[in-house]
């Protein structure tokens, strides 16, 4: 999996490309924590090119979401589709995180 990071102020965008297995879940967690260390209040996760996520990955979404929520921000999902969308729906995590059709829509909602 490739993680492309960009930021504007306290809003960070992480684009995930490929498959988030257990190993890459930890990289995602690290990337999020790096953003938080740099002052991220909101993290938009662009999942438009993410094809797979393991249960360990879901765990990190919850943990990062909690951290951002406690700081008054949020973890926002963008472009979720396919198997990954099925997993978020099954575990009702799609109701936990604000979800958006695109990164632009997520940015507009902040």
């Amino acid at each position: 999996m490739i993680i492309e990071a960009s930021s504007s102020g306290s809003t960070f965008v992480l684009k995930l490309i490929g498959r988030m297995d257990a190993n890459y879940s930890r990289e995602f967690d690290k990337a999020c924590n790096d953003c938080i260390a740099q002052g991220a209040k909101n993290i938009i996760v662009d999942m438009s090119e993410l094809a797979y996520v393991s249960s360990m990955g879901l765990r990190y979404f919850v943990n990062v979401g909690k951290t951002l929520n406690e700081a008054g921000g949020a973890l926002r999902l963008s472009g979720i589709h396919g198997l990954v969308k099925q997993l978020f729906q099954l575990t009702r995590l799609n109701d936990v995180f604000p979800t958006h059709d695109s990164v632009d829509a997520a940015l507009a909602a902040i």
């Binding site: 393991s54 249960s55 360990m56 879901l58 765990r59 990190y60 919850v62 943990n63 979401g65 909690k66 929520n69 997993l87 099954l90 575990t91 009702r92 995590l93 109701d95 936990v96 995180f97």
Partner: peptide
């Protein structure tokens, strides 16, 4: 079974894996 609360505050991060296995 994991709690599937809608609020991030009440969500726990563990227990989702075996829940998914049982569903799929």
């Amino acid at each position: 079974p994991p709690n599937l609360h809608d609020s991030i505050e009440e969500r726990e991060s563990g227990g989702l894996g075996i829940f998914i296995v049982k569903q799929w």
